[in-house]
Amino acid sequence: MTDTIIKFDKVVKRFGDVTVLNELDFTVKRGEKVSIIGPSGSGKSTVLRILMTLEGIEGGVVTVDGEPLWHEGPNLKPASEAHLRKMRAQLGMVFQSFNLFPHMTVLRNITEAPVKVLGLSRAAAKARADELLDLVGLADQAAKYPHQLSGGQQQRVGIARALAMRPKILLFDEPTSALDPELVGEVLNVIGKLAEEHDLTMLLVTHEMRFAREISDRVLFFDQGRICEEGSPEDLFTAPTQDRTREFLGSILKEG
């Protein structure tokens, strides 16, 4: 086991003529909680989507737990679907717009993939789901359908659903930006609790600066497809070295 769990090596991502990630390099250590901040369009979410294999890459190599994600074999040929399936099992994702399955109850949302994909028995999957619902504070909502829940509750189900697959790495793609302000807190509390109590590796794209500062071991500031500045939350938020970082933090603080 290596200490590094995620490694981006000169990763290039383009959408048509637009280069979203420009030879991006960074690493994440096992168990580390890393926040990614930056202006919209800077490629933050794309990093998560590449890791979740929702988007392919045009250049470079992404490594997850010592194995290339989008490539396989000694010659680094493009990954097959079977390889992607194997790699994907190590990651989980919490989406900005929850993406719960509207036709399944809360319980079913959480048990469906463990049963279908991991081959767990219904009973084992339910036991795991009950535990997770307890963790996110929704033990009494198991029989409801997503549309019967508030946005904050839905996102907490989304977190439980991702955790049910026992990923090594959990990706949060702006988990609170689709929520009404008064519901943000309950979701952040759950994420904070996870960060404190679990040795899960967490990658969080967020606009909640105060929260990023509280829970992160390290913060990456993204700008134009590159990491413009990185450091401990203390350093980056109180003494940024780059003009762009200062500018960005200034504008965010003015808004907030």
């Binding site: 979740m52 294999t53 994907r88 989980g92 989406f95 993406n99 469906e112 279908k116």
Partner: peptide
């Protein structure tokens, strides 16, 4: 919605499972 397919992929459903479930 596209998000449904992304969630299914993130949960490692096969294309057939995504279709039926």
């Amino acid at each position: 919605q596209q998000g449904q397919y992304e969630a299914a992929r993130a949960l490692n459903f096969t294309p057939r499972q995504t279709l039926t479930a």
